[in-house]
Simulated scan of single mutants.
Amino acid sequence: MPISPPRPRPLPLNALRAFEAAARLEGFAAAAEEIGVTPGAISAHVKQLEQALGAPLFVRTARGVSLTALALKVLPDLTRGFDALAAASRTLQSDAAPQVVQVVALPSVAQLWLSPRLPGLRQAAPEIEISVTAMEAPPDLKRAPYDLYLFFGDGPGEPLAPDVIFPVCAPGLASKLKRPADLANLPCLSDSSWSGDWEAWATEAMPGQRFAPRGPVFSLYALAVEEAVNGAGVLIGHEALVAPLLASGRLVAPFDIKVRLQRQLSLWSPRPIREGSTVDRVARWLRQGSAGLL
């Protein structure tokens, strides 16, 4: 009678994933954000793995955690393995649903730049399904299941539009602004993600003058734009995002001074785009929609 010896139990995959992310990103909070769980869940997974191994992976002190020699030894292999798994998963998703395109974008870009272009894309290619995820920063290129990225920055990607900034406001407020110094008499709206916009513009528009904008701060740029349209104050407009509102007259630019920043609105993909693919068609559409902005 054949004998079937018991097989060794494999290490829990979720625990390995949690450990790899925490070790690579040098923190449980960063790993939790990448994976989409709580820091407590990451800590529990790591403890589960350490118990299964019978050896520590992190040295815990009052100042934080650091990797043990064992953890440092296996981390490169685990990272390569999870990167390969992520790539295979993306291939499976892409081949199983070739008409679905996953786009990740800055929230303001998703709302003010991408969303107005989607109806035209659906009309031109109704068979293509666009899924949009809004994130404050680009996710890890190797791990995230997205086909196209749309973010402002000075890093990778194909430039779609420069980041040109200048004050904008509702037409009713424009009459109160004859010169930049008049901004001191009106609320100046700000966005917490782009906190340096007013300073960057004022440095060129009011050289040698001290200017401290006073007014409410918003965590969402699209909300700040809506409040500017409502007449709540003056906002630094990003030309690529407020162009339709300027064209319609809902917002106006009270001054002629514009400042072009180093960053730009860029489009990129975490992997080569196959010519003629659905992702390629969407990317081409977005490029055409940006013609004349560079």
Rank of each mutant, 00 (worst) to 15 (best):
E158K: 02
D163P: 00
D163V: 07
V164H: 07
V164N: 07
V164G: 05
V164W: 10
I165T: 05
I165V: 07
P167D: 02
V168H: 06
C169A: 06
C169R: 05
C169H: 09
C169K: 05
A170D: 11
A170Q: 08
P171L: 06
G172P: 03
K176R: 13
L177A: 05
K178L: 12
K178D: 15
R179N: 12
P180W: 06
P180N: 13
P180L: 07
P180I: 15
A181Y: 09
D182S: 14
D182Q: 15
L183D: 08
L183Q: 06
A184G: 12
N185F: 10
L186R: 14
P187K: 08
P187S: 05
C188F: 14
L189E: 14
L189P: 14
L189M: 09
S190A: 10
D191R: 03
S192G: 08
S192R: 11
S192A: 13
S193H: 10
S193N: 10
W194H: 11
S195D: 11
D197H: 07
D197F: 09
W198R: 03
E199W: 09
E199P: 03
A200E: 12
W201P: 06
W201Q: 06
A202Y: 03
E204K: 04
A205K: 02
A205R: 01
A205F: 04
A205I: 04
A205D: 06
M206N: 14
M206P: 14
M206A: 11
P207M: 05
P207Q: 11
P207K: 10
G208W: 07
G208P: 05
Q209C: 01
R210V: 03
R210S: 03
A212V: 15
A212R: 11
A212H: 13
R214G: 02
R214N: 10
R214H: 15
G215I: 09
G215E: 12
P216Y: 13
P216H: 11
V217A: 09
V217Y: 11
V217I: 13
V217H: 10
V217W: 13
F218H: 00
F218V: 00
F218K: 00
L220F: 01
A222W: 04
A222H: 05
A222D: 09
L223D: 14
L223V: 09
V225S: 00
V225I: 02
E226R: 02
E227R: 08
E227D: 12
A228R: 01
N230K: 15
N230Y: 15
G231M: 11
G231L: 11
G231Q: 13
A232I: 12
A232C: 12
G233T: 13
G233C: 09
G233A: 08
V234Q: 08
V234F: 07
L235Y: 02
L235M: 00
L235A: 01
G237Y: 01
G237V: 08
H238Q: 04
E239N: 04
A240D: 07
L241N: 01
A243H: 01
A243W: 00
L246A: 01
L246H: 03
L246E: 03
A247W: 00
A247S: 01
A247Q: 01
S248G: 04
R250Y: 07
R250M: 13
L251M: 00
V252S: 00
V252E: 02
P254Y: 14
P254H: 14
F255Q: 11
F255P: 08
D256R: 07
I257V: 14
K258W: 09
K258N: 02
V259S: 08
V259G: 05
R260D: 15
L261W: 04
L261P: 03
Q262V: 14
R263K: 10
L265T: 09
L265A: 04
